[in-house]
Design a binder for these strands. Sequence first.
RNA 1: GCCGAUGUAGCUCAGGUGGUUAGAGCGAGGGAUUCAUAAACCCUAGGUCGGCGGUUCGACUCCGCCCAUCGGCACCA
Length: 511
Amino acid sequence: MPAYITTPIYYVNDRPHIGHAYTTTVCDVWARAMRLRGEDVFFLTGTDEHGVKVEKSAAAKGVSPQALADENAAEFQRVLKVFGLTNDDFIRTTEPRHEKQVQYFVKRLLDAGSVYLGTFEGWYDEGQEEYYTETRAKELDYKSPISGRPLTRATEQNYYFKLSSFQKQLEDFFAANPDFVQPAARRNEVLGRLRDGLQDVPVTRTNFTWGIPFPGDEKHVIYVWIDALFNYITALGLGEPGGTLATQRAKYWPAAYHVIGKEILWFHAVIWPALLMALELPMPRRIHAHSFWIADGQKMSKSMGNFVDLPTIEGYFAKYGLDAWRWYMATQGPLQASDSDFRAQHFHETYTSDLVNVVGNCPSRVTAMINKYFEGKMPADSQSGGEWPAKCAAAVTTWNAAIDALDLVGAAQAAMGLLREIDAFIHRTEPFKLAKDPARADELCSILAQCAETVRIAGVLLEPFLPAKMAELRVALKQDDGAPLSKRVAWGGIAPGTALEKCALFPRLEA
RNA sequence: GCCGAUGUAGCUCAGGUGGUUAGAGCGAGGGAUUCAUAAACCCUAGGUCGGCGGUUCGACUCCGCCCAUCGGCACCA
């Protein structure tokens, strides 16, 4: 079955930071894992480029909105390369292919009666050009928080999406698909809010022009959120049935995973499914809303200026390497309901205890003994692997289930658990003592062959997390990476007599 | 303010339909050892299980109140 995974499209008004890097890395690990299995994977990311904020920023800089979007989109694309991320496409919402399809979808919603022209009335701040909700306006004593001038009662004509009419259908869908929104805490949040009842949502704006024109009424532009959500299917060409893009990519819909941050849950868990229902398109399989990184115990914010930004991240690459960064993101990140704290010391400890002491050290001691006792030649195992083939198979099963559930920690632990068991096995069987007893040579051969083979298999399972370092391990073990997972984790991949090199994958570093 | 969640060892978190000594990983201290990147291994850590009150023979686990933190409260990308 084709596997489709998406990140949100990133707002071009932002500079790339750890938040973007995190979401994209999570998707990248998953995409690599699925490709390793031999699945047909499509991994999408991109940029969201419309909206009043972009228009204003561009004006402030004295450039056109498109020029600003071009510059920042290019920066996001450059960053993806620096991070070694393997997205299959990069969609930009100002591309004609996207705009045309969004208009097609909106037109269909209009024709189906799911979008209608309505009137919005509310408290308007003329200086700020924004509306406040009734409660917020009351809090402000009906005065502008900026200018102090009284708010005015204003009305505006907008097109609305009949979200309210999907209440029942959404409730039924959530009931039938309890895993649709992950993690469970986020699902409960959505259900709670759903119980309060849905109101129709405006899908157009008239107070600025930097957006996709509303089909048939061009003084309206399509609200950025609606525009942005459609990226998930415009990239597959679903808005141009029969087109070239659709021919190649329509098979990827419905998406397996929309990975998002918790701040945009409502749009993805409720509005997006309702839009798809209105268009009679299939639902994505899962929405996974991760939480946020905080920095040294403090919430990251623009005003605090404490975002873990690109230069900071590149500092970690320089010191620890890209794979170490991926490992920290994937195993220590906020994939579940609570936030994770990014701390330099924690990063260092994770690097040392996981990567140096286990993932680096275990292959090192195994290849070192084989070099010392067998001149580097893979020994023959008269025990056919003993208990290890079954242990490896169990780890693969656990790993597969974890990947299916986007449980990156579980998958990483399944792989690393094998290495920890090999360490224990070496401790128990003491091959370094057997080496001194010629009468027990056969036993020694079996033990070290089993160790090497298990290390090889663990290395395969670690590839999505540590692609560069596991490539080094493959070279040391004289392996290639062509075959699908099932073949590569089969016992006996290293032929007896193969010349194995000593390897030291992760150097110990000072804090 | 309203709704929801969380609060357990230095850090990150498990756990228990109430019952003798509350667990893991990491960090820290000590030991033994060498195949290995002084790594793997063994031992140690005494934390009033957020606070107060209640129910009970007995609560960290049940109930109430309070405090703190986090999320949501719709036009915010």
